Amino acid sequence: MPLRLFPSRRHRSTIASLTALVVTLALGACQTSDLALQAPVKSPPVLALAATGGSIPPVFGEVLERAPAAIVIDEATGATIYADDADGLRYPASLSKLMSLYLVFEQLQSGRLKLDDDLLVSPTAAAKPAVKLGLAPGSTIKVRDAIQAMAVKSTNDVASVVAENLAGSEEAFARAMTAKARALGMKHSYFVNPSGLPDPRQISTAHDMAILARALRLRFPAYVRLFSEGSFDYAGHHYVSTNKLLGKVPGVDGMKTGYIRASGFHLVVSASRGGRRVIVVVMGGKTGRARDERAALLVDQYL
């Protein structure tokens, strides 16, 4: 048989196939390595609605812009103590992050997510407008830093990072937010993004936010301490809490502020004195100071 200096057509085909297989396996290994950081947070059961593409019809009704609303509830019983248009539709602004954090806390509590897990920052998340940490596309942030940034400084880029890593997209995460709202009894809330950035479809009420705040406090005592932190440091920068009642009004130990132009100034407050705890929600303040003053007055009045 003559010696072949070059492989036959059949052999060339076999070699090409083997080469393609090796390249595919190598690329697959690289992709697996790249995705390993996100593996613990990909499509967990709590986001089953997002994974299956299910949806909940939005809430319809007149949304009043920059209009006052308030409620005070007893944390132990959930009973309403005071209400001022508490079921009137409003734009929740950054109070939306309370629900985003609720979903994260569920994952942490179940063990499907760890505080030291890394979350990948996409170009979309990095491009979100302020308030933000200024995360670079392709970088990562630890879950422990992400929840602190959202709870204390209300960062929009981090909210997007969390949503994309837990559900694949902001839209999918928002569907899970709305589903959880219904499960908690929040009848008038509908979410389309995790941060509360302006969108006319993103609505809630003072009453619904009080229900959410109570659920957070009762279900996640290990994590709600984040809302009481007055500041935190990250990547060489010092960030101060947006909640100006911390350390100034006796008994106040959380929770969250919110503002967009169409909503006015919002605040959810948890406070305790003499063994009794209330949750106060004030929405539609004309200024941050006016909002804070009304919230402080309601805390004093009902504690």
Rank of each mutant, 00 (worst) to 15 (best):
R276V: 15
N165W: 02
L5S: 14
L27T: 05
D74M: 01
R10Q: 06
V192F: 08
L298K: 06
V72A: 10
D292P: 07
P198D: 07
M177H: 12
I71M: 00
V282G: 00
T155Y: 07
E293V: 09
L35F: 11
S270L: 08
A67R: 08
E229T: 04
L95F: 01
K97D: 08
D145T: 03
S272Q: 10
G28N: 01
F191G: 14
V46W: 02
L3E: 15
F232D: 01
T205M: 01
V63N: 05
L101P: 13
G53F: 03
Y234S: 09
T19P: 01
F6H: 14
L303R: 03
Y259G: 08
V249K: 02
F191V: 14
M209I: 05
D253E: 06
A127Y: 00
K244F: 09
D74H: 00
E75A: 14
L119D: 14
R294C: 04
E170D: 14
A151T: 10
V224S: 14
F105M: 12
M177S: 11
Q38V: 10
P221T: 08
P58V: 05
K256H: 07
V192M: 00
A127I: 01
A149C: 09
R10S: 05
R294L: 02
L119P: 14
A26K: 05
F105Q: 13
S241M: 11
Q109T: 10
G247S: 14
M1E: 15
V268I: 08
K244D: 13
V162G: 05
L49P: 10
Q202H: 06
L218D: 15
A16P: 07
S8A: 05
L212G: 10
